[in-house]
């Protein structure tokens, strides 16, 4: 076939397109994935019962600040990565900021506590539940975000996949925070930060295969 003929075929009876569609699709996908994560947490785990105490509330807000921070920053980059060439304008430095902040806070809190408390602070009561719940809750949000990305045109599939995983892990951790009763900074840094990092890594592995177009 001649390229000229292909151009003719493609230009016959074309429809106007809406360039805002990409933003809309991604935005709806993000909102849906957050709702799904919340729903899964409510059904499977339930909200923690002790939210009347000031300490529990403070830690809940801290966990939400961390996870919302991760999701907010990475959403900006995901929107860019959805379009061809968007990877030129993503820096991974800024996305490290919430992680750096929580690790720093964790280190300070460990430094201030006697070393006999360290085990308890790092492992909490439910580290295994956290380690399993966040990645499991993240599966459906990841699928939703990937489906939305496929309607766009990412050109760096590994990075796009990584950010999809990062956001899926972030919304999942956001939902899990409402259930989790382990209130220590090192716990949040290790088990929240760590599981979100795992989701990111898995996303990067799946990207090239799931996002190809």
């Amino acid at each position: 076939m001649k390229t000229e003929d292909l151009v003719t075929v493609l230009s016959t009876r074309i429809e106007p397109v809406n360039h805002r569609m990409v933003g809309w699709t991604m935005g709806i996908a993000l909102a849906t994935s957050a709702l799904v994560a919340l729903g899964l947490m409510l059904v499977g785990l339930g909200i923690r019962a002790d939210l009347t105490t000031g300490r529990a509330l403070a830690f809940l807000l801290l966990k939400l600040a961390f996870t919302v921070g991760v999701v907010a920053i990475s959403s900006i980059y995901l929107m860019r990565l959805a379009r061809p060439g968007g990877e030129r304008r993503t820096s991974s430095i800024r996305i490290m900021m919430p992680f750096a902040a929580i690790v720093l806070l964790a280190a300070i809190s460990l430094g201030l506590a006697p070393s006999s408390h360290w085990d308890e602070m790092v492992l909490g009561d439910q580290w295994l539940e956290c380690l399993l719940s966040i990645p499991i809750i993240a599966i459906v949000p990841f699928a939703i975000i990937v489906a939305a990305m496929r309607k766009a045109a990412p050109t760096n599939l590994e990075r796009a996949g990584a950010f999809a995983g990062l956001i899926a892990g972030g919304v999942s951790a956001m939902a899990y925070a409402l259930h989790c009763t382990d209130d220590s900074l090192p716990f949040i840094a290790l088990w929240y930060g760590g599981t979100i990092a795992i989701c990111t890594w898995v996303g990067a592995r799946f990207g090239p295969q799931r996002l190809r177009w």
Partner: peptide, 30 residues
């Protein structure tokens, strides 16, 4: 022809506020 088809099918991902060349290049290189 693959790239022309891609440009046609993915034209909704072009952001009108941005220059066209980098967008075309990203698709061509991809």
């Amino acid at each position: 022809q693959e790239a022309v088809l891609a440009i046609h099918l993915k034209r909704h991902t072009y952001n009108p506020d941005e220059p066209l060349t980098p967008w075309v290049h990203a698709i061509a290189r991809y």
